[in-house]
């Protein structure tokens, strides 16, 4: 008998996330691909001192209205509630927006530490974490603040810096469809960081638009194999 991965609610799925946990959150950072229902459940849970690993820190509901009519929910809610101690990502705050996102305000007050990582380096560090590798050498960041404190190496005629893997206690991700085993397929640009994060966390929790019995996903089109997924919640779009 297969383990039952299907949870009744997002609140149940995130219930054991603990104070001080490291949590990856998938998607690009705005809409499409962000597991907004799991983020809302994590904010209701109220745990604190989280380290968040995500592409963007979110803009919060007020600023999001400038990006999409009516606005949208993102990671801003976790910063507003003071649940985050450290953020690791490529766009903590958007330079094209006023400096009033929840993350930027919290950072200014000294309440949130940030580690800024180039987006491709972020993806690859997570892939290394999920794939059991000790890191990689990249030319990205050479000659910039990103190289500070990192090992440098010349390979061929090019200079590289060493980047180390990232893992997490939990990954919150979004997919379009799952089967009961946890095989996942995505929709459009809502894929992004979700597949790489699925492999890099101790417990991977996915919210999906639709849950189907095993056998109904074409095995040729499965993007995330089920062994990377621990918990599944079906949410209405």
């Amino acid at each position: 008998m297969a383990v039952n991965k299907v949870m009744a609610s997002c609140d149940e799925a995130v219930a054991d996330i603990f104070d001080g946990a490291t949590v990856m959150v998938g998607g690009f950072g705005s809409f499409g691909g962000l597991p907004v229902n799991l983020i809302a459940a994590l904010s209701r849970l109220g745990v604190k001192n989280l380290t968040l690993i995500a592409n963007m820190g979110g803009v919060g509901l007020e600023l999001s209205k400038r990006i999409k009519p009516g606005g949208y929910q993102d990671l801003g809610i976790l910063f507003e509630k003071g649940q985050v101690r450290k953020f690791i990502g490529s766009v903590p705050a958007l330079g094209g927006m006023p400096p009033t996102s929840p993350l930027e305000r919290q950072h200014k007050e000294g309440k949130v530490e940030i580690e800024i990582v180039p987006q491709g380096t972020l993806a690859e560090r997570i892939r290394c974490g999920g794939g059991g590798l000790g890191g990689f050498y990249t030319p990205v960041g050479v000659g910039t603040v990103v190289e500070e404190g990192k090992e440098k190496k010349v390979i061929g005629d090019r200079e590289y810096i060493l980047e180390l893997p990232l893992t997490a206690d939990f990954a919150l991700i979004k997919a379009h469809r799952a089967d009961h085993l946890g095989n996942l397929v995505y929709h459009g640009t809502a894929r992004c960081f979700n597949p790489v994060m699925a492999a890099a966390a101790g417990v991977t929790i996915v919210e999906v638009d639709e849950l189907v019995p095993a056998g109904l996903l074409d095995p040729e089109t499965v993007v995330t194999p089920h062994i990377f997924v621990n918990r599944i919640v079906e949410v209405s779009r």
């Binding site: 490529s90 766009v91 705050a93 330079g95 400096p99 996102s101 180039p118 987006q119 491709g120 990103v146």
Partner: peptide, 21 residues
């Protein structure tokens, strides 16, 4: 193209990867 005075929390996104690659 990614940071400016007074905005230490803005990031480079994919800009560094793109400029290099």
């Amino acid at each position: 193209n990614w940071g400016r005075p007074g905005r230490p929390a803005t990031g480079m996104g994919g800009g560094m990867d793109l400029a290099v690659g």
